[in-house]
C-alpha cells in the first residue's frame, strides 16, 4: 500500500511538471495580461518581478512547487482571487452532478449489460450492443442540446439550465450539494426543484459512460456465466434471477470496479462540455471560462485537481479490490 502511495505521489509530481511546462508554452505574456493593455512597460516589468517571472525556470518551478505543497494554486488572472478558493466554490456543484451521473451509469450498465449477456447472440443482445455503441458515439455536447430542445423547448418538462429556479433560495450549505442539503433541512419542494434541474445534465454526462459500462458488464458477465459454480447453481435448479444476482453478478463486478472508478474520474472531462451547455456553475463551466480568458493558473489548477481525482480513484480501486476479492491480497 505504501509503495502504491509513493508511486501515486511520483505521478502527481510528474503532472505538476507537465502543467508547469504547459504554462511555459503559452505564447502570451502573463505579466502583460495581469497589467492590462494600457499599463506602461515599466509597470509590466514591475509585475513581472513581483510574480517572479524574470527568474530562471528551475527557480520558478521550485517556487511553484512550494506553493502547490501549501495548496496554493496561484491567483486567477481574471478575478485576482486565489484559484484554490474559486475551485473549492465550484466543486460541490460538479460533485452533485457527477454523483447522480455515476448512479445513472451504474444502473444503465448493470441493467443493459446483464440483459445482453443473458440473451447473448440473440436479438436483444444485438439491439443493446447497437444502443450502447450509439451512446458511446454520440457527442456529449450535441446530446445536451438535443435534450434541451426536446424536454425544455418542445415539451416544457424540465428547466434548461442552472442549479435552481431563479425565485428559490439555495438551502443552508452543509455539504454544498443542494439536493442533499435541502433534504437534510426538510425542504422537500426545494429538493424536488434541485432534482428537476439535475436530471438533464446528469443524463447527458452519463450517456457515453453508460454505453461503456454496459459493454463491460456484458463481457465480464459472459465469462462468469461459463464458470463451474454458476453452472452448478443452474443445475441445482435455482431460478435465473437468483443465479444472476447471487452467483454471477458479484464475480462479474470485480473487473468492473476498476473501470467504474476510471469512468467516474473521466466524468470531469465530460463535465466541461456538459456544464457549459446547461449553465451549471461547477468546475467545468469555471474551466471553460478560464480557457476563453487564457487564465492559465485556473486551467492548470483544474488539470491538477483532475489528476488528483484520478489518482485517488485508482487508490480506492486498489483498496476495494482487496475487499471484494480477498485472493488478491493487500495491494
Amino acid at each position: 500500500m505504501l509503495r502504491r502511495l509513493a508511486a501515486t505521489l511520483v505521478v502527481l509530481l510528474g503532472v505538476s511538471v507537465v502543467t508547469f511546462v504547459i504554462t511555459q508554452l503559452v505564447p502570451s505574456d502573463t505579466a502583460r495580461l495581469v497589467a492590462g493593455d494600457l499599463a506602461s512597460e515599466a509597470r509590466v516589468a514591475e509585475i513581472r518581478q513581483e510574480l517572479g517571472l524574470d527568474r530562471p525556470l528551475p527557480v520558478q518551478y521550485a517556487t511553484y512547487m512550494q506553493r502547490l505543497a501549501r495548496g496554493d494554486l496561484g491567483v486567477s488572472i481574471r478575478s485576482g482571487r486565489p484559484v484554490a478558493e474559486e475551485l473549492a466554490e465550484a466543486l460541490p456543484a460538479t460533485v452533485e452532478l457527477a454523483l447522480l451521473a455515476f448512479v445513472i451509469i451504474l444502473i444503465n450498465g448493470l441493467l443493459l449489460g446483464s440483459l445482453a449477456a443473458l440473451a447473448a447472440g440473440r436479438w436483444p443482445d444485438h439491439l443493446i450492443r447497437l444502443l450502447s455503441t450509439m451512446m458511446i458515439s454520440a457527442p456529449t455536447f450535441w446530446i445536451g442540446l438535443v435534450l434541451i430542445a426536446l424536454c425544455f423547448g418542445q415539451l416544457d418538462l424540465l428547466p434548461a439550465g442552472g442549479r435552481l429556479s431563479p425565485e428559490l433560495v439555495p438551502p443552508v450549505a452543509i455539504t454544498g450539494l443542494y439536493g442533499l442539503d435541502a433534504m437534510l433541512a426538510g425542504q422537500w419542494r426545494l429538493a424536488g426543484d434541485v432534482v428537476t434541474h439535475l436530471l438533464m445534465p446528469a443524463l447527458t454526462l452519463a450517456l457515453a459512460a453508460s454505453g461503456s459500462a454496459a459493454r463491460l458488464v456484458r463481457a465480464s458477465l459472459l465469462e462468469v456465466l461459463q464458470e463451474d459454480h454458476v453452472r452448478r447453481a443452474r443445475v441445482a435448479g435455482l431460478s435465473e434471477w437468483v443465479v444472476l444476482t447471487r452467483y454471477a453478478l458479484p464475480n462479474a463486478l470485480v473487473p468492473f470496479i476498476t473501470t467504474a472508478a476510471i469512468l467516474l474520474a473521466d466524468l470531469l472531462g465530460g463535465a466541461v462540455v456538459t456544464e457549459a451547455i446547461f449553465s451549471w456553475p461547477g468546475l467545468g463551466s469555471y474551466t471553460l471560462e478560464a480557457v476563453a480568458g487564457l487564465d492559465f493558473p485556473a486551467i492548470m489548477g483544474f488539470t491538477l485537481l483532475a489528476a488528483l481525482f484520478y489518482a485517488a480513484a485508482n487508490l480506492v480501486v486498489d483498496v476495494l479490490y482487496g475487499v471484494v476479492d480477498p485472493r488478491l491480497g493487500p495491494a
Binding site: 507537465v18 504547459i22 473521466d266 462540455v273
Partner: peptide, 11 residues
C-alpha cells in the same frame, strides 16, 4: 494520470 479531454484542453 489526467483525464484525456482535460489534458487535451489544457494543451
Amino acid at each position: 494520470a489526467v483525464p484525456a479531454l482535460v489534458l487535451a484542453m489544457a494543451l
